[in-house]
Amino acid sequence: MPETPYLETREEVMFFDTDCGGVVHNLAYLRMIETNRTRLAALLGMKLRDMAQTQLFPVVIRTEIDYKKPAVLGDELVIEGKLESVERVRFWCSFVMKRVVDSTVLITCRQALALVQMPQGKPMRLPEDWAERFAHLAAVKAKG
């Protein structure tokens, strides 16, 4: 079976990531996920410079997130991102955020994305080669 695209990124919780309660603010978690997802997109063939030239962007159309445990100032975090499933016009990525020191799961997240041609805002089909490259992920979604 082909490998599922997967990427780990690391973050350290900074002052600007925390709220008045001293824990990571929900928007900071999403920023960290965004960094992982952007780098994962590059593995899928959607590099930032190419997107800027073609004006074809993966756009988040749905986010599902579960906050399990809080991260705090100074925590080192690892974000694991992977391509979860592929459909005709959208794809799903999933993310798990853990504290490095004890591997505690802090966040689980799924995001649905669609390719959108700008500036028209026109949804586009996923690249033709994705059907073959990620057939094992399309089959998983069809069974679910």
Rank of each mutant, 00 (worst) to 15 (best):
E64S: 10
L7Q: 05
L44V: 06
R37P: 01
A52H: 07
L43S: 09
R39T: 01
A41P: 01
T108E: 14
R99W: 08
V78S: 00
G22P: 00
V72Q: 07
L83Q: 09
T108M: 14
I65C: 03
Q111M: 06
T18A: 03
V96H: 01
S103R: 12
M118N: 03
D19Q: 00
E12H: 10
Q55M: 15
V96W: 00
G121H: 02
E34A: 12
M97Y: 02
V78N: 00
L40P: 00
T35W: 10
M14L: 14
P2Y: 13
V60I: 01
A28Y: 09
R99V: 01
L126V: 02
N36S: 11
Q111C: 09
L73I: 14
R37D: 02
T63C: 15
R62C: 11
R99L: 00
R110Y: 06
V60H: 00
N36K: 08
G121V: 10
A131M: 09
K143P: 11
L7A: 04
G22Y: 12
R99Y: 07
M14T: 11
N36H: 05
A135V: 14
T63Y: 04
Q120E: 14
V86D: 04
E87L: 01
L115V: 12
V59R: 03
V116P: 04
L126F: 14
G144E: 14
L43N: 14
G22S: 09
L115A: 10
E80Y: 08
M118E: 12
S85K: 01
M1I: 15
G121R: 04
R62Y: 05
D129L: 11
W130D: 06
E132P: 06
R133D: 07
D75P: 08
L7W: 13
A52T: 05
L83W: 09
P5H: 04
L137S: 04
M124V: 13
T35M: 12
E8L: 06
R10G: 03
V24E: 08
C93R: 05
G22M: 10
A112Q: 03
E12T: 15
N36W: 03
Q53K: 15
M97P: 01
V100Y: 02
V59N: 06
V86R: 08
F16D: 15
G81V: 02
T38F: 08
C20A: 15
D19A: 05
P70Q: 07
Q53A: 13
A139Y: 13
A42K: 00
E12L: 07
